[in-house]
Computed example of a mutant assay.
Amino acid sequence: MGVDADRLRDLTLALVEVESPTGDTAEVARLYARRLEEIGLEVELLDDPFPATPIVVGRLRGGEPGPTIVLNGHLDTVPIPHEPPRVEGGRVWGRGSADMKGPVAAATEAVRVVAESGRSFPGELVVVAIGLHEAPGGRGEDLTWLLGEHGFTADYAIVCELAGDRLVAAHMGQATVEIEIRRDGMPTHELQTAAGTPNPILVAARVIEAVRKQNEELAATEHPWVGAETYFFGEVHGGDFYNRHPATCRLVGTRRWAPGNTLGAAQAEYDELVAPIAAESGCTIDVRLELVRDAYSVDPEHPLAVALRGGYEEVTGEPLEATGMKVVADGAVFQAVGGIPTVYHGPRGEGAHADVESIAIEELARSARIYLATLERLWAGA
């Protein structure tokens, strides 16, 4: 008995056929829960406190004491229109095929092989699927609740996405940034505005320049895995008419930091950066950083990472080299909230967040085989 590519294809397509933008995943969660039940798992559909995005937890219990190992993925997708789902050229096409319903299907197929083999194994194998992953609509609130308030715990977790041919040893932390610059009074005609009244748009320009200089300073210090920390602006909003003196201006962007830094330190640094501009301009400048995910790192020699590297080499015949990434993902939540050692590994798809998204069926099968080989090593170590 082994990985069945046809089953992988069919489950991926079935999941992709159910639209599930972040915040609206109940239908696909119910479908996925039924599929886990069909392969013999004990399934919970946790819809409190997130009824529109219930958490799916499926358990396969071993026959002897041992570690609880989680395979995790998300069922939500970015809210970007896509052509209707289809199978063509050995690939599944459609929104979520690569990010990350195909990877969720690969995890499911690995669990199915274990379940239907009837073999005894130590501990428990748990599948966890969430629906509040894609920012800004989701920031892992459901996973944070599961690992925190709900009290779910495990010994190891594999998040089934990111580099399919590298060991992600670290990634950045990220927050969204919203800066509001306000002056007293209401908007007024430019010729009827008292001399010396600050213009929030011009004050915003000073903030942007201060951030540019700060980025230059940050560029001089590179973390060995993820590189330099960054500030970024992607939006500027100010004024409502060409000859009205505005009362507000808003900047929106991101702040990314390396392992070892924190959201609190990043907030304090930002407040310190804008304080003199606020004092000199007479405007109020409010900076709000909202966490997307924290920074993450794992020792490449941790037993979980060693098991993944060995499983990868067994399946592919190639070594799994360590790397760092700037993107953020849910391994940071498993580590920061649950204290659970976590690694990333997912099938390589194409077009995540792009107009056209797809994933090769054989790539899904390869990942399922790597999960199985990794599990065998973890069980052997138990």
Rank of each mutant, 00 (worst) to 15 (best):
T108G: 07
V70A: 06
L202S: 09
T153H: 14
V159M: 01
R288F: 03
G196Y: 13
G264W: 08
L364R: 02
A258W: 01
I158H: 00
A204M: 10
V337I: 14
R9H: 00
G238P: 08
V274E: 02
R30Q: 15
E83M: 06
D355Y: 07
D6H: 11
A154W: 02
M186E: 15
V127F: 13
R61H: 14
T68P: 04
P67V: 11
L75R: 06
A382H: 07
G227E: 12
G346R: 00
V114D: 02
A305Q: 08
I201A: 04
E217S: 14
G260H: 07
S281A: 08
A163E: 14
V28Q: 10
R183T: 03
T176C: 00
G324H: 06
E222W: 01
V16F: 05
E44F: 10
A170N: 02
S20P: 12
C160T: 15
P300A: 09
N215Q: 03
W379Y: 12
I361E: 01
Q267A: 15
R59M: 03
E134T: 14
W379R: 02
R206E: 15
G40N: 09
G253N: 09
L320N: 01
V92Y: 07
D76P: 08
E269G: 14
D6T: 15
P300C: 09
L364K: 04
E149Q: 14
E180T: 15
G310M: 01
T193L: 02
A14Y: 08
N215D: 13
P136C: 07
E362M: 06
R61I: 05
V292D: 14
R35P: 05
G137I: 03
A195H: 09
E44V: 14
G94F: 04
N243W: 11
A322E: 05
R288Q: 15
V315G: 07
K101I: 08
P21W: 13
W93C: 03
R256I: 13
E27K: 13
A247L: 03
L11F: 00
G338D: 00
G227T: 05
E216S: 11
G63C: 09
R206C: 01
D99A: 11
K101N: 03
A157E: 00
A247G: 09
A194G: 11
G264Y: 04
T77D: 11
F241S: 15
A373Y: 12
R91N: 10
E124F: 03
L146R: 02
V87D: 10
T108I: 12
L308E: 03
R377C: 00
G40K: 13
G96P: 04
A279G: 14
A219I: 06
A170Y: 01
E38F: 07
V333T: 15
A368F: 07
A170H: 00
T284W: 08
Q192M: 13
L71H: 02
A258I: 05
L75E: 10
H171N: 04
I359R: 03
V333P: 02
A14D: 15
N199A: 08
N72Q: 14
C249Y: 05
A365I: 08
E272K: 15
C160R: 00
D330R: 07
S97H: 04
V168M: 05
G282F: 08
A268F: 12
R366G: 04
P54H: 04
E229C: 01
E376F: 06
P259R: 09
E178F: 01
I361A: 03
P303L: 09
D240M: 12
E83D: 15
R7C: 06
V78G: 10
V28A: 12
H189R: 12
I277R: 07
Q174N: 11
V292E: 12
L125H: 01
L308C: 10
